[in-house]
Amino acid sequence: MFRTDPETPDLFITPVDEVFIRNHLGPLPRLDRATWSLTVEGLVERPLRLDFPDIQGLPQTRLTAVHECFGNPLRPDVPTRAVTNLEWAGVPLAAVLELAGPRPEARHVWLEGADTGDFAGESGLSYLKDLPLDQASAEVVLAHTMNGEPLRPDHGYPLRAVAPLMFGTNSVKWLSRIVLAADRPDHLFTTRLYTRVPPGGREAVPVREKDVSSKLLTPGDGSSVPAGSCALAGYAWSSTEVTSVEIAVDDADWQPAALDRRGPDPAWQRFRLRYDLAPGPHRIRCRATDSAGRVQPLTGDRNAVHEIRVVAGAGSPPAGRA
């Protein structure tokens, strides 16, 4: 998922070869761009069937965004920390919907992939997600390119949805069908899984916007470093801008780290702190806060603070640069 080489702590874009792969259904669809098509139907004035040249002929956009797996929907509180930062190119969903002409009663967008199979005791499923129409129109991109190259088969070739402010479960791969509807679909992956009760809430809501999170990358977990000044660095991300990151070593107080601002795209933000490590073993933790006031919990949730353990001592390899 990450490179943890202390000489390359600033790896901002995740190489495609290191991007995680998560699939619910199988076997994976092997689609031919020459015969693939995308249908747009339901509550629209003009139902569509678009082939790949049609997609290429629409207005194109590019963005850099964090792509994060929510985790196993059967264990929603367990941290997975599967996260990458990627460059996407494709067509704004809004351009496709403008061609179709949503009817006034349309409130939801259903996104369906070409993958089918069995999951959690249910058979004959397709992968289906839904989003509010207004939000999907404003945010979702139909991507055909990742990091400057066509999508690979495992990542949704030839076209996938990318919901850049949301968990990856909403970024449907192998996109084959878009439906506009007045209501949400009752489906395993929409109303029965990928839901959770938010802090202070009583009712389950769909898993959509990313939590505030952070991860230490330098030094690597379990590594040996020289005693003395050590560069501690990593990345933080959220559905909104991260405003601060703190680092704690062992039982010492939390210290503010230097944090890069987030640019116009919803990419992750690098943080770093130089710290004097005494000889011996150490536990190092990081904690992020975002502009919505959300703070990573210390324990007990999927975005609980990340920690690494290192040993500081004479004769260890260099500990990287801040």
Rank of each mutant, 00 (worst) to 15 (best):
D211C: 12
S137A: 14
A94F: 10
T218K: 07
E203R: 14
E7R: 14
S37M: 04
P158T: 06
L142N: 02
P53M: 09
L63W: 05
N303H: 12
S238V: 07
P104H: 10
G315F: 11
T190H: 00
A312E: 02
A292R: 12
D276K: 14
P6L: 07
P92K: 11
D130L: 00
I308G: 02
C69Q: 06
S137N: 10
A143K: 04
G263H: 12
I308C: 04
A114P: 05
P153Q: 10
A181K: 00
S224P: 00
A314Y: 04
G113I: 01
G117R: 09
S224I: 01
V207W: 13
G228R: 11
M146A: 11
Q269A: 09
R49F: 06
R192G: 00
K215A: 12
W174T: 02
L133S: 04
D265E: 05
D186Q: 00
D77A: 13
R152E: 03
R62W: 05
A34D: 14
N85D: 10
P27R: 14
S223A: 15
V16P: 01
I55Y: 06
V16T: 15
L93C: 12
P59E: 12
V40F: 12
K210P: 04
F70A: 05
T116D: 05
V310Y: 06
Q56E: 15
L151E: 02
E45A: 15
R3H: 09
P76W: 13
G293Q: 13
T191M: 00
A161T: 10
V305Q: 03
R321F: 13
P164Y: 10
G263V: 10
G201C: 09
Q296C: 13
L193D: 01
G228N: 09
G234R: 02
N23S: 15
R202L: 10
R321A: 11
Q269E: 05
S291T: 07
A95Q: 12
G71V: 11
E112H: 02
F271C: 05
R274I: 06
R283T: 13
N147L: 12
D5W: 11
D186H: 00
D253T: 13
L11Y: 07
L93F: 07
P73V: 08
H67R: 15
V78Q: 15
R196H: 15
V66S: 06
R184A: 00
R75C: 08
D17G: 14
L142I: 03
A233V: 02
D253N: 09
F20A: 13
E7A: 13
K215G: 06
H24P: 01
P53Q: 09
A143T: 10
T218H: 08
R3D: 14
S213P: 01
G313D: 04
S37C: 13
A161D: 08
G57Y: 01
V140D: 00
P132F: 03
R192D: 05
R309Y: 03
P27K: 14
V83H: 07
A138T: 02
M146Q: 12
A65E: 03
G228Q: 07
S238G: 11
P27A: 13
P92W: 04
R152N: 05
R49C: 09
A89E: 14
P279H: 02
R262F: 03
T145A: 12
F119V: 10
N303W: 04
L175W: 04
K210M: 15
L97Y: 02
T191H: 00
L259W: 06
A314H: 06
A114R: 13
P132K: 08
L99H: 03
A252N: 15
D154Q: 15
F2I: 08
V310A: 09
V311Y: 02
R294D: 07
E241H: 03
F70L: 07
